[in-house]
Design a protein around this nucleic acid. Structure first.
Lengths: 233, 233
DNA sequence: GTCTATATCATGATAGAC
DNA sequence: GTCTATCATGATATAGAC
């Protein structure tokens, strides 16, 4: 592959990352993308084959390094902990920090990538599902193991739910924190990614190790329809 | 408006709710919607004016009752608490339960509505932003007041962040719990909405009242680039 | 109010010259 | 490899008959 060819590919990938993140896969047209990249419309099909394959290439280019960094950091944390369980906040740090570093522009990606990955995880494009499972499978296995060691009192199924809350909170807050100054009526001025990381770890660490309520261990009949306020008094 | 006319409107709204939730606003075509509703393609423009106005009507029809129920329940909780602050778990219950009741088909809406609202809150359609702010403004004011009374030790700006994590976790988990049996490799079999509500309240209550770390009160310089694992030992 | 038919437009993909 | 030109498709919206 020639140097010019690679440069064209990269310009397309960058523009696609921004526009897929901004407008979503269906609304970002190849014309927008090639215009912004300064290349011809036909270049996408020449270099990537189709719009869907371009989307895959955009996502994989960023996700793979993020997940590799997560596993590296997790390995370091395990080494540092020795025979002890890895501290919960350290585990969360290895999981969240690699993503937010990209969003903070320490590494390539930035907010466009964060918006894009947040979008695809909360609302996946069907043709990406298998690829995403492939990318995330090793993570699930490793984090499950280390979390059960750190939180032996929490059943595995509860841990899974709580990790979903963690992921949801992380994606939602990180991708939308730019709007927080507006939506909080000026309350959140210090809305940098450092602050986001620290607050996420505070919040999720507490949530992950929260004591189980009685209902958690012995599920009761449906309570959704009754007014349960008295229960909390 | 005649009875037949109202029936046509409702059939369109129901089909649109399902297909907007399933495929998203841009990918759900008016042809799909009118076919599923069993009405003519032109009926949408006759009754609603445009695709965007149909989308607004679909969302408002469900959101308004949810938010009204939230405020009613919150009022009941305040009355029950008397002079005392409302218990945190009761506050969370009034906020989350009205949404999950719809998802559980106790009231009209069901999972299509939950997928739709989750979609639009995490990835808003630009033309809906103003409408959504109008619908949620009263909620923000009321919940802010009652939360500061219950958690006087947590600064308002921190509370705002933590409510964002709560909302993100709630939307992500509630909208995707149907996939959890698959994504957890069969671990999460009891994935009903009752369980979701209970687990969310466990997790978010702990996160909302988590003690503030030192960094929270006195923000430090950027730590995103340093390896912070030692910090957690 | 409801339908058919159609106007108008934007999209993804491709063929073929250079 | 890169361009222009074009095709086939599917979209929203509307005009006008009944």
């Amino acid at each position: 592959m020639s140097i010019e060819s690679q440069a064209t590919r990269d310009r397309i990938l960058d523009a696609a990352e921004r526009l897929f993140g901004l407008n979503g896969f269906p609304c970002a047209s190849l014309r927008q993308i090639t215009d912004e990249a300064g290349v011809n419309l036909a270049a996408v099909n020449y270099h990537f084959g189709s719009k869907e394959d371009l989307y895959k290439a955009v996502l994989i280019r960023r996700i793979r390094p993020v997940n590799e960094e997560r596993l590296t950091r997790l390995g370091q944390a395990e080494q540092l902990a020795g025979d002890q369980p890895v501290p919960l906040r350290a585990i969360l740090d290895t999981f969240i920090r690699p993503l937010l570093r990209r969003a903070a522009n320490e590494l390539p990606g930035g907010m466009p990538f964060l918006r894009l990955i947040s979008r695809d995880l909360t609302d996946p494009q069907p043709f990406m599902l298998d690829e995403m499972v492939r990318e995330f499978d090793p993570l699930v296995a490793r984090y499950t193991r280390v979390l059960t060691q750190t939180l032996p009192g929490i059943p595995l199924s509860e841990l899974f739910w709580r990790m979903q809350f963690t992921i949801g909170g992380m994606l939602y807050a990180a991708a939308h924190q730019h709007d927080f100054e507006r939506t909080s009526c000026g309350l959140c001025r210090e809305n940098d990614l450092d602050g986001c990381l620290r607050r996420l770890i505070d919040f999720c660490a507490a949530g992950l190790q929260a004591p189980l309520t009685k209902a958690a261990m012995q599920p009761a009949a449906s309570t959704l329809q009754q007014n349960a306020l008295l229960h909390y008094q």
